[in-house]
Each structure stands twice: as structure tokens, then as C-alpha cells.
Design a binder for these strands. Sequence first.
DNA 1: AGCACGCCGACT
DNA 2: GTCGGCGTGCTC
Length: 805
Amino acid sequence: MPHIAEVIVDVPVLQTNKPFHYEIPQEFEQRLVSGMRVVVPFGNGSRLVQGFVTNRFEASDYKGELKKIEQLMDLMPVLNTELIDLGEFMAKETYSFRISCYQTMLPAVLRAKYEKKITIVDDLEEEIFFEVFRGKQELPWEEVIDRDLVKLMLELKAQGKVEVNYEVKDKRTKKTIKRVTSTLSFEQLEEIREGLRANAKRQIALINVLQSIDSGEWLDVKRLNEEYGITLATINVAENKGWCELQDVEIYRDPFENAQIKATTALRLNPDQQIAYNKISNKMDENVHDVFLLKGITGSGKTEVYLQTISKVLDENLGALMLVPEIALTPQMVYRFKSRFGEKVAVLHSGLSEGEKYDEWRKINNGEASVVVGARSSVFAPLKKIGLIIIDEEHETSYKQEENPRYHARDIAIWRGAYHHCPVILGSATPSLESSARASKGVYTLLELKERANKKALPEVSVIDMREEAKKGNRSNFSLSLQAAIQDRLKKKEQSVLMLNRRGYSSFVMCRDCGFVLGCPNCDISQTLHMDTKTMKCHYCGHEENIPTICPKCHSKNIRYFGTGTQKVQEELQGLFPEARIIRMDVDTTRRKGAHERLLKDFGDKKADILLGTQMIAKGLDFPDVTLVGVINADTSLGLPDFRSAERTFQLLTQVSGRAGRAEKIGKVYVQSFNPEHYAIQYAKNHDYNSFYKREMHLRHLSDYSPYYFLVRISVSHENEMTAAKKIGEFIHFIQPALSDKAIILGPTPKSIARTHNRYHFQVIIKYKKEEALSNRLHELLANTQKDQAKGLFISIDSQPMNFI
DNA sequence: AGCACGCCGACT
DNA sequence: GTCGGCGTGCTC
């Protein structure tokens, strides 16, 4: 057996971001497998840290003396070889540490907790022992700090009386239940019963129960207590006397314990669905990796295609991975999967406790679950053989993690698809421009669902010009036509959904009379209002000007910042319709666990007439009695200083429109806007993705943005503004020589929130098509700036950033 | 990150 | 003269 282990240690800094070799002690030789967590001594004081074994070797080329692995933390590996490789790839792509990548792949309970403490090894003076150690053998290090004992401890350590110890603690817990079985025969128990006093009621009851079960059958102790009043104490006594045997068994916490799930079967596919199914199915048969872009309008039955392709995967004893955005992971959605695939489904989402997440993860790792449904991080689910990966609503920006490691689930999914030689399906009604562009170039295979499953026409969308409303003297958030429509639905006892677009809240300036938004003269994006400096700024090029008091276009004085809160809107709405029952859904009302589900359930049960919410209501809701959808302010997301703002607005409007008229009744959508002629709004009104795509691609082409160019953003921050500004300048000088003349450098500019936590932030964006040397150069940049980073300069590199605010 | 080693200021 | 400040470098 190779007795050298390659270990990635849990010290997330660049200098230790490489494998370290350890000797595997004899006792672990047989049990240690790559992918297990281990405890290893590390560094000068040999403090104990957690590590992941990534390989085993016969010999090491390390010149120094190898240390030994201290302890194994797992019986089964937590990472398989695929995930070990994926972590290496991911660290390189996202400019982050391998250890951080492995930790994001795993449930949080597998992350170690560290404890440092002082242990007595030789007799101490009585006074110290009782006063300082309070008569105990150990003293936690925090206490040493708090009680200012560092100096004393160092002295005692020098005298060899105490030592510093490190402990690596495993946070994971398994939920267990106690169960009991009989160890005696019916007759033997009968004999015992006769020997008992008549008033030993509990013991007699227990014997009755033990007599009633078959040999080898186990009974739940909790149930014995509930049903017969037999306590654990009684059973313990009985066990000591040898009548029965007690056992702790590990169980999974079941987050869906109380759900009643009815089995469903496959629906009949329409011709478009059938074609899509066949094409995907063929690739699965060939065992070939391919990426499909499944484009289907709302209600076209994408989910049924997912379900049936997954079903085929299961028939071949492979696993399937399905990602959905966190907010779309509703009970309705989960129910659909559970009812088709039953126990084979594992669900991973943020609503679960750490323990529940770990249990779901274990079911996957053990091979008990073969269908995984979950949000972004589920892309790392430890399925051993994957036959299909699906990313639903692939355009959603939440698939990109906004903290380190800044991975995009789509990239990870495609990497895993290639590894497993299986298809990846990207599904959306409004695909991202990047994916559509790849499909039109033939990099992805396009599959289209053009028909709605119920053959219903898409809802009619009316765009309401809020400038006209203003002229009529209506200063409220609700146009007269929307008010009339709401009144009508209330009368007919039908439901309405109203969405308040909260993106980019209050951060830009717009003219209430003509809809003019102040843009940057150099960058074709809107400028952001900075109240701290009382200026308008462009986040891309750094352009700055005064806040306008008069609209440059129509010279109206009615130009001001834009944005409204949900609570204020709710009050206004209630004032207009005193009899209406309103449910408000925003970050405030959904903060508590389960609140989101409860509010939706109440609305589904028709306990309210109007659902008022932010974009979180745009996804996945399917309520048959909703016949009216209103978008109160379509413009806020247009005003964002982001080249994707039109795309986001188009996607949002299309998505929310799909909420109207899901069943028999015909739906109607009202979109209120100060920019009704804006192409994102007009194309959304006409449900015309293709025209939107063409127009937007043209604009991206003109301004050299994605998908024509790749982007990378380098951000720095420092508590001293001058230092941060000077450093980012140096970094550009360092990177520039590695770039061709085709690359475009934007900035440096201060970030939109130029100062947070008393630190100053600057960024530079590099637009490029093909720069072979760039990635290496950026890795070098990180390596060369270790000293700066030690001195409080934060550097972060975000490849293909999604948010610019 | 955490720890040791090493070289300059205010103290017994 | 020394105690201790944190700058620098290393961790299998």
C-alpha cells in the first residue's frame, strides 16, 4: 500500500494553496482512501488542522522530514476523484484556494471547528492549579486571552508543566432513535412474568409487548412510551436483566415528513416536447456529452421534458442532477419531483437546517438518492454516475456565486457533463444572451418548445404610460387602468398579482415628465446617484457630474430619484381598496423560516385577493385563479448601471407575465412604465424574445460587451483611499504588457459603494476576446501581492462578473 | 492563518 | 543592559 498521502490543508492562504505530503501510519494504511478528511499537524507548532487527502503515493519527493497523519475524520470518503479534480479546476478558474473549493462543495457540518487549549502535563503549584486552572486539567485558549494569562502560560510551558494542544472538532451529528427487540422466547418471557409482582405494571406491559413481536423485529422506544407508557428507564432495567436489547439507529431527518405525496405518471408529450426528448435521449444512448439549450415559453412544458428525460436516466441506473434558482425551489416544485420519483429524490436548499442538508447529502453520497434537485451549490452533489444535468431558468444570475469561490454553476455543470459523457440541458423561456449566442453558433444544440401545453394564448400585455398619468394629475403608484382592473377582479372574486420592481432601488435619477434617465456620455449606461458626495457617477469609466435639477431633455423640474418601498405601496393599495385582502411578500415578510411557503399557501388557498411582492413572486408560481398581473414600475431595473439591465428587465417582465391565466381563465397583464417605448418593454409586451435578442446583440456588439467579449473584474480595497487608488494603478501596469491591443481596459474607477466598513474600493474591468496570457498574469498578480495583502489590501478577481452594482 | 525568528525602542 | 514591538518567512 502506498504510504504517502497528498493533503490539501485547511489554511486558506496562497502560500499553502498546494498539496502537502504526509506519512500514513500503519494503523490507517488499510482504511485511508483519497477524498477522506484527516487531521494533520501543520506548521511550526504542529498545530492540528483539517485536510483533504487528494492522492496516495509510494514515495515523496519532499526533501524534509514528513509528518504523520494524526487522525482520520471519515469512514467513507467525502470527495470522490471527480470532485477532487473538479476542485483543482475550479480553484484555477475562479482564482481561489483549493481548500475553499472543497469546502463549498460539501455541507457546512463537514467543516472543522478548531479548539486551542492548555493542558497540564506536570504538577503545578497548588495556588496556580486552583486559582488559574480552577482545579481542572485544561484551560481553553480564549480564557487565557480574556484573563490575560498568556505570559504565565508561556512560562509554564517553558518549564515543561503545560502544553498547548489543538483539537479539530467535527461538527456533524447524526440523528438517532432508540429501538428495542426481545432476546428471549415467548416461553422464557412468560416464565419471567410469573415471577413478577402484580404491581410491576410497567414491566408486565413491556413483557406483553416483547411477547407480541416476531424475533428480529425492532420497536421504536418513543412509540412504546406514547402508546403503552413504557419508559426508557423500564427498558434499561429489562436490558440489564437480559430480557431485551436496546440499540441506537441512525435515521435521516426528513424535511418532508408530513407531506402527503401522490404518485404521478408521465404525461403525453406534444410534438415539440417529443422532438426535444428524442434529441436528448439519443445523446444519452450514445453516452456523449452535449449542451442543449431548451427554449420554451412559460407553460410550454419544459418540466415534463425534464421529468421524462430524468426517468430515462433512472432506468439506466444513472443519477440526474437538476438545478433551479433558490426562489423557484417552492414546495410545488419539489412536490412535482417527489411525486414522480418518490424516495429517490434528494432536495437541497437553503431552507433546510445544517443537519438536514447533511442528511440529504449523505443519501446522495451513499447512492440512496439518485435524483438531486437543488439550488446553485447542488451542482456539487456527490452522485457517482451522472446521466443528465439540467439547469432550469439558466439565465438566472443567482447561479453565479458572489463570494469566493466565484463559480458559475453553469460552468461547473458543463465540466461535470463532459466528465460523465452526459448531456447538459440549459432551460429557459428567456435564455441569457450568452447561451443564445452559443446556440446560434452551434456550440449548444437549440431545442425549442413553441406551443403552450394547454394551447392557451399568452396573456395580453398592456403597457401603461405613466407620464400620461402624471399629466392627468395622478401622482399615485397605480394608473387608473390598473386600478379599474384590480376593482374588476375583486368584484369577480379573481386574484391579482402585483409586482414592485425593487432592483436598483433609489439609485438613479429619472424625469417624471419625459422618462429621461441620466446616462454616462462615454459608456451608454445610466449614472448612479451618490448622496454622500451629492454627485452622479458612472461606475464603468469614472465620469462624474452634478445631480441635475432640470431635465436636460424636456427642461422639466420634475426630475428626481426613483424608487418606492413595498410597504408604502401596500398602504396606498389598501387605501384604494379598503375591502381587499392583501398579502405582501418581500424580504421583510419572508425573513422567517417557512414564511415564504406559508404566504404562498395562503394565497393559493384564496385567503387573499392580491399578492403584492418584489421579483421573488415572478418565478414558478402557478395559481389558476390569477387573472391579473400588474408590474408597478417596470423601469427601475432599466436604470441600473449594468450592461445587462435591458436583458434583466425583459426577462423579468416576460416571467411575471407568465403568471397570468395559467388555467382556464384568460389572463391580462399591465406594465406601468415611464419609458413605454423602450425596446425591452415593447418586446416583452409582444412576447418576442427573438427580436429582443437581435436588438440587444446589436447593442452589445456596438459597445463591446458579452457575449462578444469576455470580462474580468479586478477589485481592490484598502482603508486608505490613496493606497487603494495607487495599487490598482500599479496592477494595471503589471497586467497591461500581457495583453494584446485587442483587449479593452475600463477604469480604474471607484466602486458604486466607494466606501464600506471604512474601506475604499476600486475596480478595473478588462474586456477581452482571446488573451492566452491573461489568466496566468492574474495568478501572478495574486502571488506577487502577498505582502500588500498582508498589509491590509484586499484583492479580488471576478471572472465573468454578473453584477456591477 | 499561526508560529518562530530576528532586529530596534523604553524600561528595571 | 533586557523585555517586547511587529516585520519576514515558512509550513509536508
